[in-house]
């Protein structure tokens, strides 16, 4: 038979693994090829031996410590229930993961606060009654001096050399 190179690899296929056409041609080939009949006989005779051999090899090994070793390799905090927070940062992450709007608002809050301060404190032409009461800042000096007055505390910024 010249076709063994084609059909020998098909020997050992399980039902449904070959196309109907391949199955038919393999069957026809086997009927007329002693070599491939021998290959099939070898395969059938040795079937299951590998599973048995590896199972025996595994059985000879002492597995008394195996599970303990596996469990020891798993971090203790990995045993918290799925979805449960595993720390402050992870709690925050989980919370903001569930509340995206709050997360965005939290991220924007400092910027909004800064903008609000700018608008209320330093806006030219702002009416006196809308200014923040009670605090005056003299920014030309570096070291602050706080004076208590009847109108509230006044912060003076002075140079380090006292001028």
């Amino acid at each position: 038979m010249k076709d063994c190179a084609t059909y020998a690899p098909m020997i050992g296929a399980r039902p449904g693994e070959l196309t109907p056409d391949e199955e038919a041609r393999l069957h026809e080939h086997l009927a007329g090829c002693d070599a491939c009949q021998g290959r099939l006989a070898d395969l059938e005779a040795t079937g299951g031996m590998l599973v048995e051999a590896l199972s025996r090899a595994a059985s000879r090994r002492d597995f008394a410590t195996f599970a303990d070793e596996v469990m020891a390799r798993i971090p203790a905090n990995a045993w918290k229930p799925e979805g449960a927070p595993k720390g402050v940062l992870e709690s925050l992450k989980a919370f903001f993961g569930r509340h995206r709007v709050l997360a965005i608002a939290s991220a924007l809050a400092p910027a909004l606060a800064a903008a609000a301060l700018y608008l209320f404190i330093d806006r030219p032409g702002m009416p006196a009654e809308t200014a923040l009461p009670g605090v005056e800042v003299a920014s030309e000096t570096l070291e602050p001096i706080v004076l208590d007055t009847s109108d509230g505390p006044i912060i003076l910024m002075s140079d380090s050399d006292g001028t």
Binding site: A67, W79, E82, A84
Partner: peptide, 24 residues
């Protein structure tokens, strides 16, 4: 998944030899 370590240990013991055999 719920954090039951004993359940996972049971799975390990159940399959340890076969996984070892495959790896071997």
């Amino acid at each position: 998944r719920s954090g039951d370590a004993d359940a996972f240990r049971t799975l390990v013991v159940r399959y340890q030899r076969k996984v070892f055999a495959v790896a071997l």
